[in-house]
């Protein structure tokens, strides 16, 4: 079981540069991303991304920067969120499923300079 912070980003997809921008916001502040998943939510392009990030002194800066990036609607931070990897073998293929265990521990949410949610 890996314990870390989970970031939920609600954003709008125009092209794949959205994901580059999102990941790059952490990369350029030297923050490692343990895992990443997300997808389109509706036809308007609403997109939801979850990232598992390691704690860093730069994390708040990255989150604030992300929350004021064009295309990003809000960024939520979950403290003490737990994730587990479940491994199964099926037809000789190893599948790893990452489970995010919701612990209702949302600590903050930012949207264009405002605390939200």
């Amino acid at each position: 079981m890996v314990r870390g912070k989970v970031i939920r980003v609600v954003c709008y997809y125009r092209d794949a540069s959205l994901l580059e921008m999102l990941v790059g916001t952490f990369r350029k502040l030297l923050i490692d991303i343990s895992w990443f998943c997300g997808g389109v939510v509706d036809e308007s392009g609403l997109y939801e991304v979850y990232l598992g990030v390691k704690d860093s002194p730069n994390l708040l800066t990255a989150i604030l920067d992300l929350s004021t990036s064009v295309s990003v609607s809000s960024v939520e931070i979950f403290d003490n969120a737990d994730t587990s990897d479940y491994t199964s073998r099926d037809d000789g293929i190893t599948k790893i499923v990452k489970i995010y265990i919701s612990s209702q521990s949302k600590s903050d949410c930012y949207s264009w300079g405002e605390r939200c949610g």
Binding site: C11, Y12, S44, G45, L46, V70, S71, V72, S73, S111, W112, G113, E114
Partner: peptide, 9 residues
């Protein structure tokens, strides 16, 4: 019309 953009209020 820019989805996901809110100028500071």
């Amino acid at each position: 019309m820019v989805l996901g953009y809110k100028p500071f209020r």
